[in-house]
Amino acid sequence: MILGLRTAIYPAPDLPAAKLWYSKVLEQAPYYDEPFYVGFSVGGFELGLLPSAQPGTVGPQPLWGVENIETSYSRLLELGASALEPVTEVGGGIKVAAVQDPFGNRFGIIENPHFNASSVR
């Protein structure tokens, strides 16, 4: 039985640079930091950095929740990300956007007023 999202892994061939960038984006240090994997705890989920994987913008596309998508999108660009998909309302007050991180990965964000954190298990 699938219980829900636990980890989203991002390829990071330059692990020290990726660790620094994601520490700034997430405003926290990793909780797990090894030469083969770096993990950040993000709202009960994990964002992992894997140095042995190839970056890309296609494939699975996790969306990380934000309170204000316009502010978050601007901040990601200020930190060195490149625009992939502008902030777009997709219905019901839900807004999505995506950037390309400095390492070549798609990093998606979502502002969803209907998300119920208490239903996460």
Rank of each mutant, 00 (worst) to 15 (best):
L5M: 13
I9E: 09
Y10L: 03
P11D: 02
A12F: 13
P13F: 01
P13I: 02
D14V: 05
D14K: 01
D14T: 05
L15Y: 02
A17F: 04
A18I: 04
Y22C: 09
Y22V: 08
S23P: 04
K24R: 15
K24P: 01
V25K: 00
V25I: 08
V25S: 01
E27A: 14
E27M: 14
Q28M: 05
A29L: 13
A29K: 13
Y31Q: 13
D33P: 01
E34Q: 12
E34I: 11
F36I: 10
V38T: 04
G39R: 13
F40G: 02
V42Y: 07
G44K: 00
G44E: 12
F45S: 10
L49Q: 11
L50Q: 08
L50R: 03
L50A: 12
P51S: 02
T57D: 02
V58E: 15
G59M: 07
G59T: 09
Q61A: 13
Q61H: 12
Q61D: 14
W64C: 02
V66T: 07
E67G: 13
E70A: 04
E70H: 08
E70W: 14
S72F: 06
S72L: 09
S72H: 04
Y73A: 05
R75F: 13
R75Q: 13
E78T: 09
L79A: 00
A83S: 10
E85F: 15
P86N: 06
P86M: 05
T88S: 10
G91F: 11
K95S: 15
K95R: 15
V96I: 15
A97R: 04
A97N: 01
A97G: 02
A98C: 02
A98W: 00
A98N: 02
V99C: 02
V99I: 10
Q100G: 04
Q100C: 12
Q100P: 03
D101F: 08
P102F: 11
N105H: 10
R106G: 03
F107E: 04
F107V: 07
I109C: 05
I110Y: 00
E111Y: 04
H114P: 01
F115P: 05
F115L: 11
F115G: 06
N116D: 14
A117S: 14
S118G: 12
V120S: 07
V120H: 07
V120D: 10
R121G: 10
